[in-house]
Design a protein around this nucleic acid. Structure first.
Length: 487
RNA sequence: GGUCGGAUGGCCGAGUGGCUAGGCAGAGGUCUGCAAAACCUCCUACAGCGGUUCGAAUCCGCUUCCGACCUCCA
């Protein structure tokens, strides 16, 4: 099926038709985590959003190479130039561990979270420390092209010089003068020529643990550089999509573009996609503000904000119920509502295989399917898609109740639609444990209750029903018999 | 302070000029031994004040409030 996809490009601030540079191939680079602490819920939102993009592009038939990096070096604590300390290293010293132990620990944690949330692994997940040579080569190239300078073994990017021939603020839409005037004066920047200059390569002090030899002495790469080096290595100088959180726009991505242009004379990506923030009580969730919840704290309910635990799929559903470019506020009520809604959707999904088709039917699924595609084609509008799936759910339930008739071809289409959009594209899955014994046991108990009911022994039948209710199973009586599900 | 973005019904959240999503909560009904579920119906909102227009939640201006970025952040 030919679909015309429109995506919002931060570069142009408009929705643009998605036309790959080299179809059917699509290159997508998403800035991954800096592995110096646990991934929190806000991080999860970003990767769920790009998982949706990855899944939909794949569904449309594109051959997507999805690169999402792990930054395990070079990310400074504070923007203090050579005074800064590597985040990984700082943590390592505190814990008396090797920096790589820290990186490994949090990389594994990150992967656990990704898996729990049913986020597909990227095609390539490169690490900054594995690409030091590429980063050094990139620094050389930028120096050679005249957009960087060396001071005592540290290499800075010359922003003001760059801006003479290029537009440094092309992504953030800020002009240089504004930026210079509004940048706070920080200490330890004496070496830099310009206030906005940023380090490409940083000279290591003797006590630094993570350092590598370079033409400028022992040092380590600056933040921003690893993404430029790795995206170029795996996707080329110019690729289709570059993504990340919206908070990366003014600094990280701005500098990545500058690096790309300075080294390769081209903006690295055609479409820049940014996800909005997850907020709590109206404020951005972030590690520095201390209002972040870790995913496993959400799953278990062990946190000070929410009253109970919510499953990974509930979180995923909650996140997909908002558009990726809107801020999303997390709260008890909102999670509660999503949990119930998600269960309703999943319930009707599980009824799908029991439906029987009629010779003729009133249900017409094709327009609904088109509306699902329309929603996704409009900049991955998952909340509208979910609204349509609730319409599908209503149809399923009505057919199940015998209140609506559906013919075989529409039933097949309905099954296909739910499978495609709910499982493949939204990446939702049924969390009910697949235990083969349980249905048999339950069927036996339900059978006993039906006998009691037939004998008008309601005391017994109610005792069974209420007892099951207490341990988390809900019975539903209908003309066709009794069904059950886990609450 | 500067720049940018937002303010939608009890809650969450779509929606860029007329057709006024969806979920949760609430009310009524159908079904049912009762209950639950499901289905049907109802609750029809767009911060405030002006303006443009035949018509505005949607465009413009002002005001109020909130947030993001400018420092590490997804």
């Amino acid at each position: 099926m030919e679909q015309s996809l429109f995506v919002y490009n931060t570069l142009t601030r408009r929705k643009e038709q998605f036309v790959p540079i080299n179809p059917p191939f699509v290159g997508m680079y998403v800035c991954g985590p800096t592995v110096y602490s646990n991934a929190h819920l806000g991080n999860a939102r970003t990767y769920i959003s790009f998982d949706l993009v990855f899944r939909y592009l794949t569904h449309l038939g594109y051959k997507v190479r999805y690169v999402r990096n792990i930054t395990d070096a070079g990310h400074l604590e504070g923007d203090a130039g050579d005074e800064g300390e590597d985040k990984i290293e700082k943590k390592a010293k505190l814990a008396h561990l090797e920096p790589m132990e820290i990186a490994q620990k949090y990389t594994l944690d990150f992967h656990d979270v990704m898996q729990a949330l049913n986020i597909l692994p990227p095609s390539i997940e490169p690490r900054a420390t594995g690409h030091i040579i590429e980063q050094i080569e990139l620094v050389k190239l930028i120096l050679q092209n005249g957009f960087a300078y060396e001071v005592n073994g540290t290499i800075y990017f010359d922003v003001e010089k760059y801006n003479k021939t290029q537009d440094y603020g092309i992504l953030s839409r800020r002009n240089l003068e504004e930026l210079i005037n509004n940048t706070r004066d920080l200490g330890g920047q004496d070496e830099k020529r310009g206030k906005l200059d940023f380090a490409l390569w940083i000279k290591a002090k003797p006590e630094h643990l993570m350092k590598w030899p370079s033409p400028w002495g022992l040092g380590f790469p600056g933040w921003h550089l690893e993404c430029s080096a790795m995206s170029e290595k795996y996707l080329g100088k110019h690729f289709d999509i570059h993504g990340g959180g919206i908070d990366l726009v003014p600094t990280h991505h701005t500098n990545e573009i500058a690096q790309g242009v300075a080294a390769c004379h081209i903006n690295p990506a055609k479409y820049w996609i940014h996800t909005n923030m997850l907020t709590m009580n109206g404020q951005k969730m972030s590690k520095s503000l201390g209002n972040s919840i870790l995913p496993y704290e959400l799953f278990t309910g062990h946190n000070s904000i929410l009253s109970k635990g919510y499953s990974p799929m509930t979180l995923r559903f909650f996140i997909l119920q908002a558009h990726y470019r809107s801020t999303l506020d997390i709260s008890n009520d909102a999670m509660e509502a999503s949990e119930k809604g998600f269960k309703r959707l999943m319930n009707s999904f599980s009824l799908l295989d029991d439906l029987t088709a009629s010779a003729t039917g009133e249900a017409d699924i094709a327009p609904l399917q088109q509306r699902c595609y329309d929603a996704m084609n409009d900049d991955f509008n998952s909340p509208v898609l979910i609204a349509e799936l609730f319409e599908a759910s209503r149809i399923i339930n009505s057919v199940h109740d015998g209140k609506l008739k559906i013919d075989q071809s529409n039933l097949d289409l309905l099954k296909q639609l739910m499978q495609t959009f709910m499982l493949d594209i939204l990446g939702l899955k049924n969390e009910e444990a697949a235990n083969n014994d349980l249905p048999n046991v339950m069927n036996m108990i339900v059978g006993l209750r039906s006998e009691a009911k037939a004998n008008r022994d309601y005391a017994t039948s109610d005792r069974i029903r209420d007892g099951l209710q207490k341990i988390g199973f809900q019975l539903k009586d209908s003309k066709e018999g009794t069904t059950w599900n886990k609450i």
